[in-house]
Nucleic acid binder design. Structure first.
Lengths: 125, 125
DNA sequence: CATGTCTTGACAACATGATTGATAGGGTTC
DNA sequence: GAACCCTATCAATCATGTTGTCAAGACATG
């Protein structure tokens, strides 16, 4: 019945509830709600209004985490960067992530050079 | 003796000492020194180590003021945006400034759509 | 039905950051 | 010599980011 091959792995498909998503990105659920309030992420909702985050949402959040935690950019700066990327219609964030890595010959299968989540012990020590 | 025509108006020519520059951008001299410490601006120096800001420096500072004061971006975000612009080799900041203005048919003579300084009453009330 | 997880909303603690201010000791310019 | 500059430090103020908690309610699954 698989339409393409593995529709379960569609990166846009909403799958994670907020507690799971928070664990994936090593943040507090409260923080993810704030990101949504700030308009930085727009997770889907179930008919009963439950947030469901897709893989793309997770990647977007990981970008926010990278910019805020590693680079010290505040949410207003993240918004400006996202807005810039959207207006220019190109993946400018990638160029920003080539910080210590300079440039690698080939890209990882992670479609857009997003920082990968290494699951920490405690999301919110 | 004018080489081209009016070399005095070369936008890269260092002319303003820090007190004058601070007045031009409506900020405290202390703030301008912080911008320099953060690597956001690099004014020229006289042989006796006195800072001299050029028109381009002023425009750059006005960008910082716009991003920080009007958009709430912190200095780390400003650095990310400048770094991005430098890596991409294009004026992406312009696209960011078209916020409420969308796009105007013609550009003002101000070479790069930089927010103009309207001199306030008190730089640091 | 009971339990657990979700929802929004509010309040607060804590640390960090941005900006301005003041001070000290010394150099530069007029 | 007065007024400006330099570096460096300390501090006050205000805003922000993150986490935490509490409340009252809706929903899903056992």
């Amino acid at each position: 019945m698989a339409t393409a091959r593995r529709p379960d792995r569609d990166p846009t498909r909403p799958v994670y509830v907020i507690s799971v998503a928070a664990t994936l990105v090593s943040a507090h659920p409260r923080t993810l709600r704030i990101y949504e309030e700030e308009g930085l992420v727009c997770p889907a909702r179930t008919p009963s209004n439950i947030r469901l985050y897709s893989e793309e949402d997770i990647r977007r959040i990981l970008w926010i985490r990278h910019l805020t935690q590693d680079r010290g950019v505040n949410l207003a700066g993240v918004r400006a960067l996202f807005e810039l990327e959207e207006r220019l219609g190109m993946r400018i964030l990638e160029a920003l992530y080539d910080e210590g890595t300079r440039r690698r010959d080939e890209e990882q299968p992670g479609e857009s050079g997003v920082p990968i989540a290494q699951d920490d012990d405690q999301p919110h020590g």
